[in-house]
Design a protein around this nucleic acid. Sequence first.
DNA 1: AACTCGGGGCA
DNA 2: TGCCCAGAGTT
Length: 216
Amino acid sequence: MLTKKQTIDAIDQIQEMFPEAECELIHSNPFELLIAVVLSAQCTDALVNKVTPKLFEKYQSPSDYLNASQEELEQDIRSIGLFRSKAKNIQKLAASIINDFDGQVPKTRDELIGLAGVGRKTANVVTSVAFGEPAIAVDTHVERVSKRLAICRWKDSVLEVEKTLMKKIPIERWSDTHHQLIFFGRYHCKAQSPKCNDCPLLEMCREGKKRLKGKS
DNA sequence: AACTCGGGGCA
DNA sequence: TGCCCAGAGTT
């Protein structure tokens, strides 16, 4: 596994590749962000952003989602996929916010995770982006990159990956690192065909060396 | 731990 | 065309 210093070196190099990486989801308040992140499960931010402008114009509060029929909400988010479960979860989530949190998006991770459709990743993004609470949301990209670079162990669970990242990266960099790892994973260190032959991190990457050896 | 949801993106 | 995907819930 990489040491703290090696990890930070790697993050520095990734930052040079994606200096302006940040959350791309369109939102103007915590509630909109929460909805956008819930919608983003298993699809890209760009896809969610095609739907949310109209969606947020039509539904501005939790009660607006509750007043719509489930079928109507499904139609409004149909183009992003998984729309049935997402519509159902959003209505349950809206009800919880009204009944249990006085209409406000809760600010702690534990409270957020209790909401329908909100898992550890969504909770981390919301606390981090909306409430400035440092967190590293481990999605499939962050997990894959962390394992390929040996920042963590191959067999680590998502929770262990998160703990390792938080231990090795200074807290003031958590938020930036999160987005940089995602961009790196999405556009360069891709799941299927990573660009190992054009990667500044190849020297310190076990997986990349293995991969190139196997090819040639 | 494995399975499911699902339309869009991309090779 | 066919395969994969910025997850979470259920069994």
